[in-house]
Each structure stands twice: as structure tokens, then as C-alpha cells.
Design a protein around this nucleic acid. Structure first.
Ligand SMILES: [Mn+2]
Ligand SMILES: [Mn+2]
Ligand SMILES: [Zn+2]
Ligand SMILES: [Zn+2]
Lengths: 138, 138
DNA sequence: TTTCTACTTTGTAATGATTACAATATAATT
DNA sequence: AATTATATTGTAATCATTACAAAGTAGAAA
């Protein structure tokens, strides 16, 4: 679900996670930018507000927050990870023309095959790639 | 579909692609090893039979064959690509305990959401991760 | 408020998969 | 056998990510 920054901060407090300036800025960025940004995009944007910021901190923070299940990693590119403040089950569509990554509201459970009876499923990943409507109509 | 080596060779001939020793060995390996191997696994295995083999050739060959749609890339790991001789639509399950990647026969079209009306879909990717039946029963 | 300390951030170096490139080799045709 | 366009090979470069140690800080306690 799309949690607000306040809800995310509450979760950090409940788990006794330190509310560092950097962590709050990263969470704030992900809440305000629902574009599945890369590490570099987050880094460049926050560097302006926090000049001392290190890219390693972005990596550390994003890794930690995804371990805590406060954010999600979207591995839809082959060379670079993307991050998502929405931790609810949903799919993604990547347009190979404009590069935009769309969210897909869908019931992922509808596509679990019988083969997996007896398996424990921890992650469900559904990605589509192609050309988006907007790019097609041009 | 799971094509035989002969069928794959026929497709290469039809497309006027040179039947080099290395290409044939890579295709043969993928036909005989339905384990979604990594570049390094393919390289190490074939290096024994073809001592002059270069890892760059494995990369070149796999990239070329996947451009030609004769094989598929399976991007289910976050650090390393895997390759699949089965180009038919199917999903994958990765066991985080034993590392095995299972094939999932499934109707991918069943999980395309309405959101995508008007979009052109070129790739459909369905991945699950968790613990497999065999690992759970131990 | 000040002190304390465990945890965090930072900068730099290392890692590891993948790609670029140029020299050498070869498949397929003549 | 000669030719040539294409492929292979080895090495170096690239680039995202991680390892590590020194410096900094959040939060608790005095
Ligand atoms: Mn999303
Ligand atoms: Mn497969
Ligand atoms: Zn587009
Ligand atoms: Zn297993």
C-alpha cells in the first residue's frame, strides 16, 4: 500500500530504528516521487539538499529499508535496481520507448500455477515490457 | 517451446547465421542443461571441451542468440543473468534455499490487467521466490 | 545540558558482471 | 585453394554495487 511519510516514520519508531536525517530524506523522496527511481536519481536529487550526502549512504539506506520491508526493490532493468515506496502487491510495465515504469494494480494470486502446491512463496514478481499507449499514439 | 538442437540449427541456417563451433556448443549445452545456467557455468563447462574458448564469446553468443529469439534471458537473480533454451511463455520459481530455478507452466495471459489496454506487450515476466517443496520437507 | 556509546554516515578502494576494442582466426562461398 | 565477411579471443575499460575503516551523530542517561 502507499504509505504516507508519517506512517513510515511511525514504523521506524516502532522498530526502534534511528530516525536519521538521511533515512527520512530517502523515505520522503520515495513517497513524493512514485517513479521507481534509481540509486543515482535519488542521490543526485538529495545531494542538493544534503551536500554531505554519500552515495554509499543511499545504498545502505535503501538496502536496510527493503530488509525492513518498508520499501521494495524493482528489478525490471538488467543493469540497475529501482526502488518503490509502495510495498503492496502490484505489477509493473516498462515502456521501452519512453522508459517510464507504470504501476499495475492486479491480483497477483490469480496467476499462481498449480505447480507450486507445497512451495512457500515469499515474493511475487510480475513485469511486462513493451510500448506504452502514449508512445504508440505518436 | 523446448526445441531440439536440430531445430535450432535449422533456424540458424534459415537466417543465414554461421554455424560456428562455439555457437553450436552453447546451444547444445542449453538444450542438454535445462537448469537456467549462468554465463560462468556455461563457460566453465564448455572450456573443458573447447580449451581456446573465451568468456567474451559466451557473452557475444548468448546476446546474439537472444536477439535472434533462439534463447531467453532469465533475470531472476539481482547480480547475474541466467539463460534458457526454452523460449515458450513460462514462469519461474527460485528457491532461496537450494538455489534451484523451477519452470512454471502457466497461462501468462490470465494475469494481464485491464490497465494495459492500448499498450503493446513484448515481454511477459512472472517470477516467484521462496522455498521449494523439497527444501521445506527437511 | 552534557556525556556516552552504539549505530550511522562518509570516502575510498575493491569486487564482479558485462562490454569495448583490436588483432587473429574461421565458415562459407568462389 | 583463395577470398572475405564475420566470429573468436584476450585484454582493458565500464559501471553498479559492496567492503571497510575513520569520523560523525541519534538517542538515552546522568
Ligand atoms: Mn510500483
Ligand atoms: Mn525456464
Ligand atoms: Zn512510453
Ligand atoms: Zn529448494
Amino acid at each position: 500500500m502507499k504509505k504516507s511519510l508519517d506512517e513510515l516514520i511511525k514504523e521506524l519508531k516502532e522498530k526502534n530504528i534511528r530516525l536519521t536525517h538521511q533515512r527520512l530524506k530517502v523515505l520522503e523522496y520515495l513517497v513524493n516521487n512514485r517513479t521507481h527511481p534509481t540509486v543515482d536519481q535519488i542521490y543526485k536529487a538529495l545531494k542538493k539538499e544534503v551536500p554531505s550526502l554519500s552515495k554509499t549512504t543511499i545504498y545502505n539506506t535503501l538496502n536496510y529499508l527493503s530488509e525492513l520491508k518498508l520499501i521494495k526493490v524493482v528489478a525490471i532493468e538488467d543493469n540497475e535496481a529501482r526502488f518503490d515506496g509502495d510495498t503492496g502487491d502490484h505489477g509493473h510495465f516498462k515502456c521501452n520507448s519512453c522508459g517510464k515504469i507504470y504501476d499495475l494494480d492486479m491480483d497477483m494470486d490469480k496467476c499462481i500455477p498449480e505447480n507450486l502446491n507445497g512451495f512457500r512463496i515469499d515474493e511475487k514478481i510480475v513485469h511486462f515490457k513493451g510500448i506504452c499507449k502514449r508512445c504508440l499514439s505518436r
